[in-house]
Design a protein around this nucleic acid. Structure first.
Ligand SMILES: [Mn+2]
Ligand SMILES: [Mn+2]
Ligand SMILES: [Zn+2]
Ligand SMILES: [Zn+2]
Lengths: 155, 155
DNA sequence: GCAAAAAGTTAGAACGAGTATAATTTTAGA
DNA sequence: TCTAAAATTATACTCGTTCTAACTTTTTGC
């Protein structure tokens, strides 16, 4: 039902994600800078699948001197570390970042542009089937659906 | 095994796809121009998931006066008609077009960049499950896997 | 502590995919 | 053949992303 499986209270989940991101940076010998902390904080809080520009503006409010280059650099590092996932985009739209790294399906509304999360069991049965049928070494995969969200169907 | 289910001989399949594209254009009252025929010809032949730029250069060899705008216009029309599918892309890479509209999974090799097709049964059982679990009206969806192809694993 | 080296941040330039525009050419149908 | 509508073309433009070089901060070695 276009909701995320809420098993952990939000405040705790956010804090856990934030700590995990910083921990991942530390483990890979990246330095923990105020800018990176601010970006991680925002990414841990949001559920909006933000674009780099949205991250930039959000962080800028609390941290007015941050530059776009730092945002791009930080998300690139977090992506390499597997803490966030880059969502491919079509046409001239920019990329978005997936901050919920638990396997799920993203449904993009072609009217309002929002992305909704759907938990689906057996997601990795797909991975197993691919493994069984190819010599390809698949490290990640994602499923995107496109259509019209409930809100936009009414209007 | 990173192959496409070859049920129809290639030459016939290509010709059938080509005719289907022109037919779709005609049905929707688009005019059949030499430029559109050349683009459709290339799209029917290729299995390379080409970018607009690759289409442009390929068609330019047989049709030196074609412009990029015409390529963009033509693929937009063919996409609207459902004859090709736009594959979202990450970062600064351009979109690619899926010319095989039968449901299958695309596996992208992160070393060599090639995209491989995998036929997978139960693809639309996923669609059904999404339907059952959401109010979202899903019109299309696709699955992409990322990893290392057999060739690149050896090297 | 102090200097040198390394890593990170920053503003702005550069790049390139994709879109918009307007003049010209071509098509389809009467 | 003639005409109106549609398509093609070169070009300008937009904007997301990457690159660059100067500057700042942090770490390292003495
Ligand atoms: Mn999501
Ligand atoms: Mn494919
Ligand atoms: Zn919507
Ligand atoms: Zn490869």
């Amino acid at each position: 039902m276009v909701t995320q499986p809420v098993t952990v209270p939000n405040v705790e989940r956010i804090h856990a994600r934030y700590k995990a991101m910083l921990q991942a940076l530390r483990r890979a010998n990246y330095r923990i800078t105020p800018q990176r902390m601010a970006v991680c904080q925002f990414l841990a809080e949001t559920r909006s699948h933000p674009t780099p520009s949205e991250i930039y503006h959000a962080v800028k409010e609390q941290f007015p001197t941050i530059s776009r280059a730092t945002v791009y650099n930080t998300v690139a590092v977090l992506k390499d570390l597997g803490e966030i996932i880059e969502l491919p985009s079509g046409g001239s739209a920019g990329v978005r970042y997936e901050t919920d790294i638990t396997p799920h399906v993203n449904l993009t509304c072609m009217r309002c542009g929002r992305i909704f999360d759907v938990a689906l069991e057996d997601l990795d049965s797909i991975l197993h089937e691919i493994d069984a049928r190819t010599q390809f070494n698949v490290t990640s995969f994602h499923i995107e659906g496109y259509g019209v969200c409930p809100d936009c169907q009414e209007a």
